[in-house]
Every structure is written in structure tokens, then in C-alpha cells.
Simulated scan of single mutants.
Amino acid sequence: MDTMDVAGASSYESSNLAVRARRAGSLMVRLLFNPTAAAGVVVIALILGMAILAPLLVAPNTPDAYQMPRDWGLVNAPPGTSGHLLGTTSTGADVLYGVVWGARMSVRLSLIVVGLSVAIGVVVGSLAGVLGGKVDELVMRLVDIFMAVPELLFPLAIAAALGPSLTNITIALACVLWTKYARIVRAEILRVRESTYVEAATALGDTRFSIFRRDILPNSLTPLTVQSTLDMGRVVLMGATLSFIGLAEAGLAEWGTLVSQGRDGIAAGHWWTATFPGLLIFLWALAFNLVGDGLRDVLDPRTQD
């Protein structure tokens, strides 16, 4: 390839990136003009801010900041108690500490699980969609096996086998959620590769890998954006469920663990232990569902003028 070809390819790539940047900016503006999606963005921003500023809002009092400090002399203290704005649990742990550091824990869980699931799904789905034939058949049967197991039962079995740990919960959820991304990517690749611009690139002599990298894969990722946004909320719900039944470390500053600790105290009038973390779980899941629905509307060509 001579110098002019290299310069032309570089110019094309730069132009392509600029177009995508403008589209992303336009997408964000349209999303923020959707009232429900904008409300979801605000809630997500507030929880993310709380997660990022956790060391400033509630200073860690233990070597492991995710382990809640305990005051056995002050158990089941109601909200507003001196030094305990949201009260304490039946073990003397500060609820505010668990809520704030639990936000960081939940954000980390969502990002890691969804990131791993998307990465695995894109690789597996791309192999199936591009190579086709026996590879496609083998991959899709593997996906079918994973999807045949109830969505919560499989991570429950994995987390139970590996032992109570948030790391094991993360691995268990990623082992389940990648399958839907693989199916989405495969279906989109099969659709996009029949497009006119892909046929034109093939006729011009572009390599198979170049066409896949430049034309097929970028235009197959739109549904993943919506699905990953929705899963950011679902992951916290599923993680909280696994933590609730005791598959996370004891004393962990995590919303599901706090709800589990507070379930017995609700009947005795100690409602705060479960209510505040439960409310954060609800808001986190609701916010990402609102944003996901907004993205779906914005990205759907039928809703565009």
C-alpha cells in the first residue's frame, strides 16, 4: 500500500469517527429531551456521585471499607440517632455507611458484569455470525444450553458451589448474561452483512476482516446499547437477590445484604434497615429502565422525523 492509500484510509477513518461523534452527541441531546429518560439520567448521576464520593461522605472506619463497622452498644437505633443518620442494624452496623458504600459496590458489580457479558457475547456472536456453518451451529447450541436453565437458578448454583463471595456472584452473573448478547450480535451481523454498503465494500476488494471491523460490527452494536443499559439495573437486582439469600460475605456493605439483615426487624418496627437500601435498589433499577426505554425510542428509526 503506497503513501496515498495510507493517507486516504486514515482520512476515511478520521471522517468516520467524526460522524459517529456527531451522532453520539445528537443522540444524547435527544435522550435528554425525553422527560422520563432525563429523570433516569438524573437518578443515575446522583447514585454514581454517591458511589464516587463514598470516602468523603462516609469515611471508612475499617481496614476493608466494604465491611460495615459495628457498634454493639447501639443496635436497632432509629434514624436520626446521634451519629447514625439512617439508624443502625440489629448488629449495630450503620445503615448510612452500608447505603453509601453499597452504592459503590453495586456500581462496580453492574459495570463488571455487564462489561464481561458484552465482551464475551460480542466475541462469541461475531464468531457465529461471520464464520457461519458448523461454527455457528455449535455456538448457538451452546447458547441454547445456557439459556435453557432458569436465569436465576444458574448463577445461584454457581455462586453456591464457589462459596459466599461477591466475586463469585459477579462470575455467576456474567456466566449467564453473555448469552443474550451473543444472540443479539449474531442476528445483527447476519442482517448487516446483507446491506448494500457491505456488498459495495466487498466489490471494491476490501478484506473480510476490514469490512467486519469497519462496517459490520459498528452497525451491529445499537441493540447492545439498549440491552446493556437495561441490564445495568437487572444486575443489581439479581446481585441483591443472591446477597439476600446469603451468597455474599457476612457484614458486607451491600444493598441486598442490608435488606436481608433487616427483613426480620420489619415486623418488630425496625423498618429502616431494609427500607433505605431497598429504595436505592428500586431507584437504580428504575432509572436504567427509564434510560433504556428512552434509548430504544431514540435509536428506533420509526420514531425519527
Rank of each mutant, 00 (worst) to 15 (best):
I189V: 12
S126H: 08
V198A: 03
G129C: 07
V176F: 01
P218Y: 07
Y181S: 07
T257R: 02
A172P: 07
S228M: 14
S165T: 02
V135E: 06
F154Y: 14
G121S: 09
V143P: 05
T179G: 13
L190P: 07
V118Q: 08
L190M: 15
E199S: 11
A128L: 03
A160D: 01
A119P: 01
T202R: 14
G133Y: 12
A187G: 15
R186V: 10
V185Q: 05
G132H: 10
V139R: 12
G239E: 10
A203H: 00
F154K: 06
A240T: 08
A161Y: 11
I120S: 12
L247T: 11
A187I: 07
L217H: 04
N168W: 10
I145R: 06
V118I: 15
R213H: 03
T222C: 00
P218A: 12
M238T: 04
V192I: 15
V198T: 08
A174P: 05
P164N: 06
I169V: 15
D231V: 01
A174K: 08
T222R: 03
V185P: 02
R183I: 10
G125L: 10
V226Y: 09
M147I: 13
L177K: 10
M147V: 13
L252M: 14
I145N: 06
A161W: 13
V122R: 04
D231Q: 13
V123K: 08
M140V: 11
V185F: 13
L177H: 10
F244A: 03
F146S: 15
P164E: 07
L152C: 06
K134Q: 05
V149M: 15
T225S: 09
A128R: 00
S165R: 06
V123F: 14
M232C: 11
T167N: 12
G132D: 12
E188D: 11
Y197S: 11
F154N: 08
L138V: 15
A128M: 04
A119V: 15
L166A: 05
V135A: 14
V192N: 02
N219H: 07
P155S: 09
T167R: 14
V235T: 13
L247W: 13
V192A: 02
G205A: 04
V236L: 03
A119L: 15
A250E: 02
I189Q: 05
L142W: 07
D215C: 02
P223Q: 07
P218F: 09
V124G: 04
T170L: 13
P150L: 10
P218H: 10
G246F: 06
E137Q: 14
V259E: 04
D264R: 12
S195I: 00
F209D: 00
A200F: 04
T207K: 03
L204N: 06
A250G: 03
